[in-house]
Nucleic acid binder design. Sequence first.
DNA 1: ACAACGTATCGAGATATTTCGATATAATAT
DNA 2: ATATTATATCGAAATATCTCGATACGTTGT
Lengths: 115, 115
Amino acid sequence: MAVSDVTAMFKALGDPTRQAIFEFLCERCCPVAVEETGEVHQVQGVTVGEVCCHVTGSDKFSSTVSFHIKELRLAGLINAEKNGKFMICSVRREAVDAMLAYLSALPKSDSSLCN
Amino acid sequence: MAVSDVTAMFKALGDPTRQAIFEFLCERCCPVAVEETGEVHQVQGVTVGEVCCHVTGSDKFSSTVSFHIKELRLAGLINAEKNGKFMICSVRREAVDAMLAYLSALPKSDSSLCN
DNA sequence: ACAACGTATCGAGATATTTCGATATAATAT
DNA sequence: ATATTATATCGAAATATCTCGATACGTTGT
């Protein structure tokens, strides 16, 4: 994952609404199942409606939340796949790992010579 | 460090110019010295002029870079202290640690029960 | 076929961010 | 005292982001 990708992730997470959505998805996303074929897929996720409900407190669809979900997806922080008439959202763990790796790799004060 | 602080840090780091400034400071910031008194202070840092030079490629002061340095400081990512006619900038390691802690503490898919 | 549902997208207004030049200020050098 | 240097701040233009209502679209139920 390139540095520019991490920039987009930080930018996306830098909005309170999106951060709330992302944390909600982190809490709600469930284990993955491994088929006999070895294929791994998401067992469960959260619908856009559930996210709207959690974020706005109302049970009505919110185009604003939909907008933020799209931003999170474009930044690579979440996945969203259609299931019937629902969109199921889930966290991309690689994204979290990429941000952790980026921050961990920043030169530390005592790891480099001083001029 | 509160969650909202981390949000501001992510937002600040989500801009390419500020990320470049931050990385530059990470590379350049040097060890701290501990006085006999036990007081710890920054031995060295980087002047605003050096940051401008690195970011813009020119040796002229840039009010844009100055603006971004201020944003980084307000987000808690860097320190800036005056030394004579220079402003010395340095990274706040606690900020990096706070972001790492936040990301590390996000619930993992296999750490929570599934509904 | 039609209605209801879940979600996306569009358009517009409100607000925030970014950039840059001009001016201001404080510290140093002459 | 005056000039120079390093930096900050202001103002304005350009651009981006956020929010919300309206409309559109695909899916499901009747």
